[in-house]
Simulated assay, not measured.
Amino acid sequence: MTETPDLWLPTALLALILLGDALVSIKPPALIRDCLDGVGYPQEWWWTLIVVKLLAVAGLLAGLKYEGVGLATNIAVVAYFCCAAYAHIRARFVGWTFWLNCLGMLALSAAVLAVSYLA
């Protein structure tokens, strides 16, 4: 295990995808609105998810240079999507958006962690 990513591209790609997700979440399309409503996340708190994603982007990019930051951030991103998956399961909101969006992002973030830091 290394403190900076062995391969920088997967980490940068995850950061780019999270940035896109955060930007789209500013005025969320129906897909995201349905997910947040489906798990019962209050609309007045939706802004917090944008902040979390932007902080994750900053941490992943900083981790390309500073030891430990990217690893810790990548682990936090995996934990974030584990919590999102739990929220979906608990709310019994497990339609195609759960499988595609939530579990897809969990798989991507876990794969980036494995390829970039654990290989």
Rank of each mutant, 00 (worst) to 15 (best):
L19I: 00
C102W: 00
I75V: 12
L23C: 08
A58Q: 08
Q43Y: 14
L118T: 12
I89C: 06
A85I: 00
A30Y: 11
G68Y: 05
L55E: 03
A87F: 13
G95Y: 07
L60H: 12
A15C: 06
G104S: 02
L18E: 04
A110E: 05
L49W: 09
L36W: 13
L54C: 06
M105T: 07
L100N: 00
Y41V: 00
W8F: 13
P42T: 04
Y117W: 15
V115R: 10
A76I: 00
L54M: 08
G40Q: 10
Q43W: 12
P5C: 05
T4V: 15
S25Y: 07
K27Q: 09
S109P: 11
G95D: 10
F93Q: 03
A72P: 01
A111Q: 14
K27T: 07
V51C: 01
A56K: 04
W8V: 13
W45L: 13
E67P: 10
L71A: 08
G63Q: 14
L18W: 06
A79W: 11
Y117E: 14
R33S: 14
G59T: 01
W45R: 12
P28H: 05
Y41K: 01
L103Y: 05
R92Y: 07
K27I: 07
C83R: 03
A30E: 07
M1S: 08
D6H: 09
A22R: 01
L16D: 03
T2A: 13
W99F: 12
R90N: 11
H88K: 05
W99M: 09
L61K: 06
R90W: 11
P29V: 12
L60R: 04
E67L: 07
S116D: 15
P42Y: 04
V24P: 00
V52Y: 03
L100S: 09
L18F: 10
A85Q: 00
V115L: 15
E3H: 12
V69D: 05
I32N: 01
D6K: 07
